[in-house]
């Protein structure tokens, strides 16, 4: 509630400016982007920054017939890989020279590129009802909704 009040007393020009400002995606950064392995975990980790993922996590992943298994913080995870839909690429965008202010144009660059994501469920086997699997249906449907219609 507090936030809404604060916004309401801001001058109109401020609100407008946040709509004026753009965030540029620097594409020439793609060539220098890394291709790391990308994992989606079923927990929120209160951390943004380095971690010994390959040493602790990747090294202990077991590949079984229909699923992968691993554990994190003593909890059993089951997962599988999902690919980006045809015609789509995974990117990690990173803000450069973050100003922390809403008042300026911003710039992001491509810091990583990926084509597959390994997602992990807490204890349940991966299946077609998993969120990310279902969400990957979106680009196909977006094409239907937004593609050109015949005259």
């Amino acid at each position: 509630m507090g936030h809404i009040l604060v916004l309401d007393i801001l001058p109109l020009s401020f609100r407008m400016s946040s709509n004026c400002h753009v965030t540029t995606l620097q594409l020439d950064s793609v060539s220098q982007a890394e291709c790391p392995s990308v994992h989606l975990l079923p927990c929120e980790i209160e951390h943004d920054g380095p971690a010994e993922v390959s040493q602790f996590f990747t090294a202990t992943i077991k590949d079984q017939k229909h699923e992968k298994t691993v554990s994190f913080r003593g909890r059993g995870l089951k997962g599988q890989e999902v690919s980006c839909p045809q015609g789509y690429t995974g990117l990690v965008l990173r803000e450069v020279n973050k100003s922390g202010s809403d008042q300026e144009d911003r710039t992001v660059k491509v810091s990583s590129v990926f084509h597959k994501v390994t997602y992990w469920n807490l204890e349940t086997s991966p299946n077609s009802d998993d969120g990310i699997v279902m969400a990957m249906a979106w680009p196909d449907l977006a094409e239907a909704i937004h593609g050109p219609v015949d005259d």
């Binding site: 790391p36 990308v38 920054g49 993922v53």
Partner: peptide
Amino acid sequence: FHSWFIGQTV
């Protein structure tokens, strides 16, 4: 309740 591992980062 989701987070990413991206390469050697969280």
